[in-house]
Write a protein that binds this DNA or RNA. Sequence first.
DNA 1: GGTTTTCACGTTACG
DNA 2: CGTGAAAACC
Length: 737
Amino acid sequence: MPDSDAILLGLNPAQRKAVEHIDGPLLIVAGPGSGKTRVITHRIAYLVQTTGLSPRRICAVTFTNRAAKEMRNRLERIMGPQAQQVTASTFHALCATILRRDGESIGIPSDYVIFDDGDQMDAIKRSMEAAELDPKRYPPRSLLSAVSSAKSQLMSPEAYLAHAKSYYDEVVQRVYVEYEALLRRSQGLDFDDLLAKTAKLFKEAPDVKAKYQDRFVHLMVDEFQDTNMAQYQLAKDIAGKFQNICVVGDPDQSIYSWRNADLRNILSFQKDYPTAQVVNLDQSYRSTKTILQAARTVIAVNTQRLEQELWTDNEQGEPIVMAEAYNEEDEAQEVLKEVDRLCRTEKYSLRDCVVAYRINAQSRALEEACLRYGIPYRLIGGVRFYQRREVKDALAYLRLLQDPYDEISLARVINEPPRGIGKKTWDDFTRWTKQQGIPMYAGFQVLAGDDEHGPSTDHPFGARQAQSMVDFLQLLNGLRTDAAEMDLPHLIDEVLSRSGYRAHMMESDDTDVEERLENLKELRGVTAPYADMPALEGLQAFLENSALVQDQDAIGEEEQQYLTLITLHQIKGLEFPVVFMVGMEEGLLPHTRSMDDPTQLEEERRLAYVGMTRAKDRLYLLRAFRRRVLGNTAPGAPSRFLNAVPLHLVSPGIGVKAKVRAEPVVYDRRKTTNVDIPVNVAPPFKAGDKVSHGSFGQGIIVSCNPAGGDFEVTVAFLGESGVKRLLHSFAKLDKVS
DNA sequence: GGTTTTCACGTTACG
DNA sequence: CGTGAAAACC
């Protein structure tokens, strides 16, 4: 561990102040690229060094596991092994630990299961059935978001009703009540509960609160602009005794209000903590002067912000490139051409480049272009591993083994694979157990009867239906017995085979059976670390971990060369030498759904700001003249955010067709092509030529046709690659004699 | 009760 | 256009 002077070495005056300020509340407003992670970690090291405080009495909260991991790594580098004693985790993980340990005093069972957002949606739908609400009239999605919003604001159903202003609010309240009852019956906690129940625990068990208040002498919260009210309350509670609360954030990068992040938390921090010191980290070490200036003018229009004059000592850098493509395919092609040029004629490689977009659907055109031109890419996001159907199904079985009262998991697998318990039976069963006032699991037990009297007949089900359900109960019980005597990976195998799930999947003639089996294999693979503990114990640890750590397949850790495709939301916190922002059009950025509300519009602007400030050297802002939206093509106007960028920072674009700030004009498709390669050049290949390609291997030219100043080459490759259509200027095809 | 067809719908996604 | 979930069909 270096001494305190060494820790301060290399910090600018503002950073220094943020590190040195020890006692009392501290607000650090950290602009993009201002080195805030560095400041937090150095602050922790400095604290330990100068005050002699034990590292285990410091708590640093982050929003993503990625950030927590990064912080732990950095701490380890500065502090050495004692860094491990610092609590660096997410609010949710912290709360899950507190609840397992101390939750019993407010009636949280220690074997609770965590409900993710998919489970929440299922639970809302079932709650709507119970409350007799028509999903057509009230979209479950909007009810879920209302309920989640209430919960994240620590409002109970009763409190919600008290504030109800409209009939819709009453509807929400009705669902909310049912939803809470369902969760309680199921012994489930959703992500909002993890926070809210912990807040409740602190409120109702002062001794527990005191325990954590005493333990954590210092609390740090990163990305404070993204906290919701529950998290704010928790931070306030934990720091309640020593008042050493240090929050770090940037209101201009708040892009998660739709997830209940409350900008007021950071904007009014000084009001809530009048003695708070404020440090402005306004020097950017990331972007060029040009990029920073452009981003600043874009964000300056917003009103909900803390004034900040970002500056940098970096070079002026290259102008920002704005360009208009004809449509989304053309846009993708332009991006790839430029990426290719940067990689070939400048110092950049594929992994230095990123393409960012507003909505996931935009990735499609980019992916297709990458495949076509043979550019390796990596798509961040999409359907996450634990969201895939087969993985969710398997987890539901596992969860039932841990918590047989989990109704959501039960509903998921009761007839998966089909075992003769269809909708009718299930509905009847639901009604019957409700009427009897017993949990569903107990319902099965009643049907099975007891050992002495054999199967019960005191129920409204036919013999075949009852038998199906008794069989299911026996399946579960059998698996629970197994769980006692085998490890987790084997238990998963056992679940998949004894339930008939795997067999049913293999019989199906779906096209993606292979892939789904592969996913199940992978699931089994991730349980390997739990193999050396008893299955039930491992199961609980695994289920908690899989809920809490939905691993963002390790962004940036790979050495391989890939072009990164990512949404503007997910790109936050990352930086790249070269950033392409595509779809800079009205309706996309800002998105249609956000255009008529000034608050939401400000958030869209922040999204643009976040995207722009990811770039270190080069920034490209692209748009398409017309774009396919929901099936049909429509022209789109240039995004209003483009207009804010000062013209002197902009270069007139990629290739000849690029227009700065073009009015929408009638665009002639034939004129939209670049002229790097004159059209009258002789074709590079003729049909029958043998060629070789770096990744596809040997192949034979099928055809070679002029396409927009370039040549589209169709090649039949040997082996698995098959027939590919490639663009001559991209694909490095060598003629083989 | 299980399978096929039709229909409606469509932003962003951390834990 | 592509996808998931309800409705119609076997």
